[in-house]
């Protein structure tokens, strides 16, 4: 069994969001970077669990990014990947990124490709589906549970009002979300071991760039809270009716 987990670099959830270059670029100065939590906590950890259940499993990581992605790749290796491939590209277009991942996946002949359901910065939720299409493989999105039974995948998805259980043959692309696994903390042995694990850097393949960001905007500042004394419900009703216009 060969598994490829796609990992992306995202700003820490506590990072201050600001833009530069006339609101066309994310201002990266002073930002703490983390592995996209959906990639790390769910996709990678579930892949590690599958490898623990079957130690013959080979677990590779792929990242499309610049050299500044390497600390988060080392962390992923410390958690449990066998080796990592970084495609040296800063392209932010989803189709281009998916094309790079598809090229790596094709070369490696993987049985399973895991992604997070989305990144927590751009929330595109599109890489998994695009990779599957480019490789002509089946795709199951937003998985909350993944198991292998008799060489086939049994995947549970969350749907409106309940759950859906899918079965699919391998190879397969799956996007993962909360429920797949529990977050792990890399221990010192893993961190030491990651020093010597291979991290290969490859140049991007030729692929189209289909989209570009025109501009970013921050959400409007939240209006202040208006407190109405508890003994004055009439005033509350008047404000809801005349100012907020919700009743």
């Amino acid at each position: 069994m060969k598994i490829l987990v796609c990992i992306s670099k995202t700003p820490d959830t506590t990072a201050k969001i600001a833009f530069s270059d006339n609101n066309t670029k994310f201002a990266e100065a002073g930002v703490q970077w983390i592995i996209n939590p959906y990639d790390e906590w769910y996709a990678l950890v579930r892949a590690i669990e599958l490898k623990e259940a079957d130690p013959s499993t080979v677990l590779h990581l792929v990242n499309v990014g610049g050299a500044d992605s390497e600390p988060i790749i080392r962390k992923a290796l410390a958690l449990g990947g066998d080796e990592a491939i970084r495609v040296n590209s800063d392209n932010a277009d989803s189709f281009n990124i998916a094309s790079q991942i598809a090229a790596i996946a094709k070369d490696g002949a993987y049985d399973l490709i895991f992604t997070g359901k989305e990144t927590i910065d751009y929330n595109g939720s599109s890489i998994g589906g695009m990779v599957a299409e480019l490789l002509d493989l089946p795709y199951i999105s937003h998985a909350v549970k993944f198991d292998l039974e008799g060489g086939k995948a049994v995947v549970v998805r969350e749907i409106e009002g309940g759950e859906e259980t899918d079965k699919a043959a391998l190879p397969l692309v799956v996007s993962c979300q909360k429920g797949m696994a529990e977050q792990r903390i890399p221990n010192m042995k893993g961190i030491m071991g990651a020093r010597t694990k291979p991290l290969k850097v490859t140049e991007p393949v030729a692929a189209e760039t289909l989209t570009a960001v025109a501009s970013f905007d921050l959400p409007p500042a939240k209006a202040g809270v208006k407190l109405v004394p508890a003994d004055n419900p009439e005033e509350l009703v008047r404000l809801l009716h005349e100012e907020a216009r919700v009743i």
């Binding site: 390497e70 600390p71 080392r74 962390k75 410390a78 903390i185 890399p186 221990n187 010192m188 961190i191 020093r195």
Partner: peptide, 17 residues
């Protein structure tokens, strides 16, 4: 080093958890 920072992050996350 990046490794020092990862070690610190791991122990900090352990303490938080």
């Amino acid at each position: 080093t990046e490794e020092h920072k990862l070690i610190r992050e791991s122990v900090r996350n352990y303490v938080k958890k």
